[in-house]
Structures are given as structure tokens and as C-alpha cells.
Nucleic acid binder design. Structure first.
Lengths: 135, 135
DNA sequence: CTCAATGTACTAGTATACTAGTACATTGTC
DNA sequence: GACAATGTACTAGTATACTAGTACATTGAG
């Protein structure tokens, strides 16, 4: 099997106060969202990434596990960790709650910065517009 | 001075794991963003809110202080805590960048959970609708 | 079967986040 | 000035988040 080792370039920002495992999670998510990581791509091995970032393997494990629980990764013991085919798992009420949470956080942050809900909607609209232009 | 005591109805969600002080912060921010709280409105006093929520006054203080540092509140010792006149501190391009950042994060999270930008907009719309109903 | 490479499980130390207890300072009214 | 109402400061206990240490299990190639 020819592995596509299009491995993401991870980098940590100590000083930021953001937990290491969370930075890894965010970078994988970002990689997927941006298309830098595609379904089937293999991530660095637990040990390899631990060495690269000079952290403990278990910290990598924690990040990978959380991503797997979210359905973004598949781990196969002895083989490696891969970007999985995406399946929106939780359904119904739980899913609704999740969306409410995300939007709530966003509104909260925006409100603190002096933005209104209308500002948010407008910004999202622009995203859609850009998306259409790019096609 | 006739105080407009249009006091936000706070409610805590223990079980959620979200720190109490953060829940307070989010609810104030949300109240401002949604228009439920307006400039000059007085918030519950530190002691009053502590009693209402059955928490320690210092927990309320922590929330209020963080909000004040963010410029959303003004506290006057002996008088009370009020929604401050909002000063969009960073201006122009920086401000635009800030909004882009917030929305970007939100979209990223939503995307990882399988939601679309349209889902977000719809959810925000519902927030506005709720606001109008309550008046 | 053997072995190297991979992920996994269990434990534990340390920092810090969160909340609470208690006493103090400031303001405005009378 | 007295007093009631408000915010403030300092301390400390407890939970838990985060990371690390160490040993084990699974996989696939040869």
C-alpha cells in the first residue's frame, strides 16, 4: 500500500497558553477544512510527532483520540492514523444542541468585540459570496 | 437617577462543566449582542446575583471584572455595575480582521461538526427572532 | 515465527483553574 | 458623621486539566 504521507506541518505555540493537545487538534481540523489534509492521508505517527514537537507521546494520543471520537480520524493499531471519511454522527437533539453551542460562543465573542448578530450574518453572507466567485 | 433595572435573567447550567463565572460572562455578552441589555442598564449587584445563583460573591466579581477589562461594563464602587458605552476600541482594518477571525473560527468548528454556513445563518436568525418575541 | 513499527492502558506528578471564606474600602443618603 | 449598600482584596482549599513515565497489545512484513 502506497501511503500518501502528505503530512501536515505541525508547529506549537508555547507561550500561548493553549494546551498542546488542543493545538494539534486545531491544526488537524484546519488542515481538513482547508483541504491540506484529505481523506486517507496518514498523519505522523504518535511517536514521530511526539519527537518532532518534543512532547510526550501520550499528549499526541490525547489529541488523536479526541479527533477520532469526533469522527475525523481513524486509527488502526500497528498501522497508523488516517483522515477518515467524514460522517456527521450525533443526530437530532444532540446535534441541535451542538449548533446552539457553537453559535452561542460566536455571538458571545462577537458581542464582546462590539459586533452585532447582524454583523455576523453579513460576514457569513460574504463567505458564501466568495465561495461562489471562486467556482 | 432612575435606574433602568432591566436585569438580565441569569441561569446557570451546572452539569455542563462550563465554569460559573464564564456562564455569567457569556450571558452578559449575549445580552448585549442581542440587545436585551442596553447602555446604562444596571446589572444585579454582586451580592444579589451571588444569592440568586447560590454562588460565592467572588465568582460574580470575577465575571464582572473580566467584562470590565473588556470594556463592556463599568463598575462604580458603592453604586453598582452598569453596561458601559461601547467603544469599538480597535478600528478600521484591525476591526475587520477581528470579525473575520471570529467568524472563521466559528465556521471551522461548525465545519468539523458537519454544519454548513447556511446552518449558522439560520441559527443566528432564530436568535434575532427570539429577541423580538421577548419584547 | 520473529521483529520492528505502530497504537493503547495505566499510573502519577504538577500546575492552574475555579470557587469559597472573610475582612476591608468606597459611595451616596439622611 | 452614621449607616446601608455597593464593590474590592487577600487567602486558601479542591478539583481537574495537562503532561509525562512506563509497560503492554496489535499489526504486517520478511
Amino acid at each position: 500500500m502506497t501511503l500518501r504521507r502528505r503530512i501536515h506541518r505541525f508547529r506549537l505555540d508555547l507561550q500561548s497558553g493553549v494546551p498542546v493537545y488542543r493545538q494539534i487538534i486545531d491544526q488537524v481540523r484546519g488542515g481538513i477544512a482547508s483541504g491540506a489534509l484529505e481523506i486517507g492521508d496518514q498523519l505522523p505517527t504518535v511517536r514521530q510527532l511526539a519527537v518532532d514537537l518534543s512532547i510526550n507521546p501520550n499528549t499526541v494520543v490525547r489529541a488523536y483520540r479526541e479527533l477520532e471520537l469526533g469522527g475525523l480520524l481513524e486509527t488502526h493499531q500497528g498501522t497508523g492514523t488516517f483522515i477518515s471519511a467524514q460522517k456527521p454522527k450525533s443526530g437530532g437533539a444532540e446535534r441541535e444542541r451542538q449548533l446552539t453551542q457553537i453559535v452561542g460562543d460566536c455571538v458571545s465573542r462577537a458581542g464582546a468585540a462590539g459586533f452585532t448578530v447582524e454583523n455576523l450574518i453579513e460576514q457569513l453572507r460574504e463567505l458564501i459570496a466568495e465561495r461562489h466567485q471562486r467556482r
